[in-house]
């Protein structure tokens, strides 16, 4: 088990390093002189020189890379060129919106998808199953940001139950904060839940065909007992895979949805940084997103080994 963990952790670390190289090359090497790029064509040469100085661009490329990587560990990510505040502070503040939003949406979609998928599989071929299959087919086809707009139209503009956007901050109380994140989380969660429910259903249907389900039934388990005790846990393995893959969609979705609701999250930050050509902010936000995706896949692998005794003990 420790060897397994070590191996996975090592490959996680390698992935992060290689990904950081890619991000660094695209944002710091491809544009030529990042300082000139950020300031645009009309910048005065001495302004550019000053920025070069501030960014430490006169150091060799590999030094700059190491400095940046070191900064990721120490939290010294440089100072935003447009905001004039340390990038680390900027990101930390935005994370307090983006991470709760993603977690809220993930929780909602799992809470919806698992029971719905299990129900559809248990009642395969019934009207319930047909309804779930039809509903989820539609759910997959709906772009989450458009769904968000419809939610705003119905619940904010027409019914006035929620505000149409903005975020009061957690200082206004946990309830107010969650309330502001509810519509965005639903908009993110439902299309996600549709995919997850379908995966859950088909994974369950596959496991229900397995020989060991027949064995369990021959031992005297009812259909329901065989489903809960034997099929669900086995079906979790493919579901976990999809859950891991879906995380990157969730992340992308959250960034887009923040725009619909004017939430001060990472998404707003990175789009503003792009239009301002603030590469210092962009590289750190992008790196953060990439690390998040790699980390989630790492966690999914660990989760596999907890669910499946065939993994982990011997690799």
């Amino acid at each position: 088990m420790t060897a397994f963990l070590f191996q996975r952790a090592l490959s996680f670390a390698i992935s992060v390093v290689v990904a950081s190289l890619v991000v660094f090359v695209v944002l710091e090497v491809v544009p030529g002189d990042p300082a000139a790029f950020m300031l645009g064509l009309n910048a005065a040469p001495d302004t550019v020189a000053a920025l070069r100085e501030q960014l430490g661009l006169d150091a060799p490329v590999w030094m700059r890379y190491l400095g940046w990587i070191g900064g990721i560990f120490t939290g010294e990510l440089g100072t935003s060129y447009t905001y004039r505040v340390p990038v680390a502070e900027l990101i930390a503040a935005r994370l307090w919106v983006s991470v709760p939003l993603a977690a809220y949406a993930l929780t909602l979609s799992t809470l919806i998808a698992f029971p719905v998928g299990i129900l559809a599989a248990a009642r395969r071929g019934s009207a319930v199953d047909a309804g779930v299959m039809g509903g989820t087919q539609l759910g997959i086809a709906v772009p989450n940001f458009w769904f968000a707009m419809l939610l705003v139209l119905v619940f904010s503009v027409t019914l006035r139950w929620f505000s149409a956007g903005g975020f009061p901050g957690w200082d206004a109380g946990a309830f107010e904060g969650l309330r502001a994140l509810t519509l965005p989380a639903i908009a993110l969660a439902l299309p996600q839940a549709a995919i997850l429910a379908r995966v859950m259903r088909s994974a369950l249907l596959d496991t229900l065909e397995e020989d060991y389900i027949r064995t369990a039934r021959a031992k005297g388990l009812t259909r329901g007992q065989a489903l809960w005790r034997h099929a669900v846990r086995n079906a979790l393995i493919p579901v976990l895979t999809i859950l891991g893959l879906q995380f990157s969609f969730l992340l992308a979705g959250a960034i887009i949805i923040e725009n619909v609701f004017f939430l001060p999250g990472l998404g707003r930050l990175v789009f503003q940084a792009i239009s301002a050509r603030d590469l210092i902010v962009v590289r750190s936000v992008v790196m953060l997103l990439v690390i998040a995706v790699i980390l989630v896949n790492f966690l999914v692998e660990i989760a596999y080994s907890l669910v499946d005794p065939r993994l982990g003990r011997r690799v």
Binding site: S15, V18, A19, V22, V23, V26, L27, V30, P31, F37, L245, S248, F249, L251, A252, I255, I256, V270, A273, I274, R277, L279, V282, V286, L289, V290, V293, I294, N297
Partner: peptide, 19 residues
């Protein structure tokens, strides 16, 4: 492949657009 998977399409688009 694993490496590319770590970059969701949106992140790739952000990288390209930024430059």
């Amino acid at each position: 492949n694993d490496l590319v998977f770590a970059f969701p399409a949106l992140v790739i688009a952000i990288l390209i657009t930024a430059v």
